[in-house]
Design a protein around this nucleic acid. Structure first.
Lengths: 191, 191
DNA sequence: TTGGTTCTGTCGACTAAGCAACACTGGAGA
DNA sequence: TCTCCAGTGTTGCTTAGTCGACAGAACCAA
């Protein structure tokens, strides 16, 4: 679905990127995104600050990249990145997103409003792309509308779930929510 | 005693050196020195082979450097690198060397003859320098002779100890050996 | 012996990373 | 208000690391 990021790349570039990503993830576990400066990241990564800007325009792009990678690996873990729509795949997507957001909220230090809305934008973009891919052989010419509706619905559900003080049993929660989302997609599936 | 290796150095150099050293140590734990090629080290470290040669003339120099660092840290751990001769310091030196060689024999895969004699050369050079430093305020003008004698004696003892199938209690072994070495050095001490 | 293979050490051309500046911004005080 | 300070992007130049290629050494097998 997406080009392989492990393609033949200058090893210096691979090394620098992974140093930046790793340092950033470590910092996110310690303090909130707003308080982390580019300087902090490069200090921790032991690279020059100018080098950072050769890889990312700013710290927001770094967050975007980092969150994308994490969410993508969640998707790949559940092998949702190379398939079509099915109730079971949709179920797994919702489960994965709930897991992902819950983990994010526990692993990141005091997530603030800004942080959460940045994450939301990044992740929704990926969900939308994934759903569009699932519906690629649809009988209808455009799948924008159903993909958008489902994306927002799914994210809303997962966000709601992950913010609960006492999270209920995930399976039960998803079983209840699934049909409401599925109905939006089913009429657009190829089979 | 020695210049600080953490001085301001290009971070790329620090990074590359530590990648090389780490990969080499890891490889030494898996297979014997003879079977490890420069290629193997650079593959594991994910650096270019040409870069290796910018840092070390060959794999023997790498071994020398690696062993030196390990032994030096053993010495520093016991704060023997900034002091004078005393029976207690000598005792600690012998203890440290026995520990060091024993660890080396268990952590390195099948040490061969070549490997052991390379280690011996490197470590004896360091012991000699250390003893010369201990005797630096000697009444006698030259300390070469006693430092040489003691170096060989100490290394011989530790080598003997570390090769035993069933190693006896280290403390007891050292207590027995200590006076034989001490007598060679005491007459050269300043006090 | 010959030929194949793998490792070695070195080279020159190219590219990424380091560094020390710079001007600029926004916030915190006094 | 003004100044101080810390962080941001950007630049020109230097240096380290990468790449591909080379000839030669060591070894093994046909």
């Amino acid at each position: 679905m997406l080009p392989n990021p492990d393609e033949k790349l200058d090893p210096r570039v691979k090394r620098t990127r992974s140093l930046i990503l790793q340092s950033f993830d470590d910092l996110l576990a310690e303090r909130n995104f707003e308080s982390i400066s580019v300087q902090d990241v490069t200090d921790k990564a032991q690279i020059n600050r100018a080098t950072f800007y050769a890889h990312f325009p700013d710290k927001y792009a770094l967050l975007d990249h980092s969150i994308s990678r994490m969410f993508m690996s969640e998707i790949e873990k559940r092998t949702l990145n190379a398939c079509h729509y099915s109730p079971d795949n949709l179920r797994n997507l919702i489960l994965g997103l709930c897991d992902f957001l819950s983990r994010l909220h526990t692993s990141c230090a005091q997530p603030h409003q800004q942080f959460e809305s940045l994450v939301e934008g990044t992740v929704k973009k990926q969900i939308f792309d994934l759903l569009s891919y699932w519906l690629r052989d649809s009988k209808k010419s455009t799948t924008d509308i159903p993909a958008t509706v489902a994306t927002w619905a799914i994210y809303g559900l997962a966000s709601h779930y992950s913010h609960k003080k006492k999270r209920p049993a995930l399976e039960k929660f998803v079983d209840e929510a699934l049909p409401l989302v599925a109905v939006n997609l089913e009429q657009f599936t190829a089979a």
